[in-house]
Design a protein around this nucleic acid. Structure first.
Lengths: 199, 199, 199, 199
DNA sequence: CTCTAAACGAGACGGTACGTCGAGTCTTCTA
DNA sequence: TAGAAGACTCGACGTACCGTCTCGTTTAGAG
């Protein structure tokens, strides 16, 4: 049994740079998942990791950058998009998995908090897009375009828009929790969009 | 010509409560629109409005609450939903207007920053939902249900989901600016959803 | 029996300004006398006094200013010059007393360290002159001028120069301890100067 | 035309020890005269000289030691005491020259700052005495003793005390600039002491 | 019309965090 | 193998903002 947040103390001289980096990222990720972005502090990361504040400032330009790096050092990478040949199934599967991640785990909540901070922190926004939203969007768009070539979508459809109408809808319910985010919601999203809601 | 951010100085004694409130809200709103949420500080609002920090803490429980109150004291109220009888037209009109507000004005940017802060501030989130997203969603849902009763939407459609697939898609592009937010985007959203993107 | 360096903890709100000032000065003086100017730190004074660093920065513009204020809050004020009617006696008495203070006590050592710091800190120098060297010089000069009027010194003597040749000589041995500072030294200073060292 | 404080960059490997020493001292002296002791930093000396901080720490035990070494590598050595046969003339000449050095040049100011630092740095004090005050005092004492043997001073005079009453008086006015340091002051010092100030 | 209670401002204070600087230490690499 | 490069910890500094507290003042409302 290890004590959870024991502040590390250590001698002065140099340590291997990436050993330090690794410990800092672990500490940052842990702090983020344990206490959320509101309580995430450079000072606490330093204390937890045994690194000095100066070192953190050296390697990470801002609090947001450190948080995001810490996040991705602790959380599993983005899973590949399934491809069963049926776009409706694949979209529903992927949406449900994503919902489970975002709505059901600490990591999901934290990711939304990071996105929130990114609204007032351009560097964090850039990093968020590059490391999270970008790849996800790309994978979804590619799957949709494959489906279009297979004739499962109309030829004139803008797949980027479709992504916004699926994942954006989920983001909506995550960021503004007026309504719950369920599997049925995911299914309705896909159904609405493929068949249309018109008469 | 008045100097823009002149710090107010005033005598000591008691002043009418709502005069104080009014001036504080004006100052808060102005500061918010001028410098954004990142630079929004209780201290600055106090200095700008001539009120004391204690008074602000008394009337507003948190920075977020004050910011949101200030925001709505300065920004125009939510406009009513048009009703021409054609739901496609009405949705497109309303979406375009909203896009113009959110993507084209300082106020829109600030609202997104507030939503961002709300991810780590439950009170702010509650206020945001009550004063902004809630009414908007309600109005859109009502318009959609009217359309459904008119037979312009299928009878089994969940209008709440449709709202997510329209406004949520826009929020998506606002909060994660991977792609631009254009009038064509609004039109595509409505078209996709009404006619479906399937073959 | 009071524990010596117990760090004080206290609630948040305001305390009477001069209560804080008093405690800070006591702590500063104590720290100065206990550990000397080299170990004198704003941080330590804050911890020792229970005040916050911010408060110290508010009231004292620099470390030197705080140190000097702390010094004089702990050390006895400058004693008056004796006046027996015989200038030789009075000078010797006063010099010996001063030597005893400067060379025999912690306070004297500290005062020299302050003067040392003042060589690279103009504000500290100004304060030192105003609160220590100035009054001492003035009192000595006045005693000498009284003696001149009594005919105990030649009429054309510049008393300021005489002060430098007495106290300055002592400062010399204090600041550059090549040779010891004894009562005989004080007597020799007065004798040399009154009778001359020429043949 | 060379820029004055250009930081040197150089490859990694070893360089001859005394080449390093020489460059370090030059850089230290230059920095000291250019910016004074308050801005004198091991870090800056390293950057300026192209040596590593470790090397500096290896050769010089403290900042003060480095500063003093740097000082004497740049400033002219102590001039010999004149000996015209007339002690009054020689003393006055020497005092005036010293005053000109100490009060009129950057080097003099820096020397006083070093003496100031020496009040809280015993190693620096030891070095200062050995390399500056000691030789000066010795030369002056020897000149005075020659004069005493020539009969120009009374036989029972302690020449060390006389030195304190001349140079110490000047130090007094240098270290505590209450009054200016002029040629007339130097003349008065000698006159007072040789003829006495008594009636 | 007076008196009092409530609210306000001014200002100060402790606390947390930030970003920076310089010192001293340690390791790795190079000439 | 001595020196350089570079990274790291540590202690301290000065600043910003927060939330709290006291004090003196002013006004609204009760008597």
């Amino acid at each position: 049994m290890t004590r959870p947040a024991e502040p590390v103390r250590r001698g002065r001289g140099r340590r291997p740079a990436d050993e330090v980096r690794r410990e800092v990222l672990r500490a940052a990720g842990k702090l983020l998942l344990d206490e959320g972005m509101a309580a995430f502090t450079i000072e606490k990361v330093a204390a937890l990791s045994g690194a000095s504040r100066v070192t953190l400032h050296k390697w990470w330009p801002s609090k947001g950058a450190l948080a995001l790096d810490g996040y991705f050092s602790v959380v599993a990478p983005i899973p590949a998009f399934p491809d069963t040949g049926d776009i409706a199934t694949d979209l529903t599967t992927q949406l449900k998995a994503w919902i489970r991640l975002m709505d059901g785990t600490r990591a999901g909540r934290v990711l939304l908090e990071l996105l929130g901070q990114a609204q007032t922190d351009p560097e964090l926004m850039a990093a968020y897009r590059e490391r999270n939203s970008g790849p996800r969007r790309r994978m979804a768009v590619e799957a949709l375009e494959r489906a279009r070539h297979r004739g499962q979508l109309r030829g004139d459809v803008d797949c980027e828009v479709v992504v916004d109408q699926l994942w954006g809808a989920c983001y909506h319910r995550l960021l503004i929790p007026d309504l719950p985010l369920t599997d049925e919601f995911a299914e309705a999203l896909v159904a609405n969009l493929l068949a249309g809601v018109g008469p």
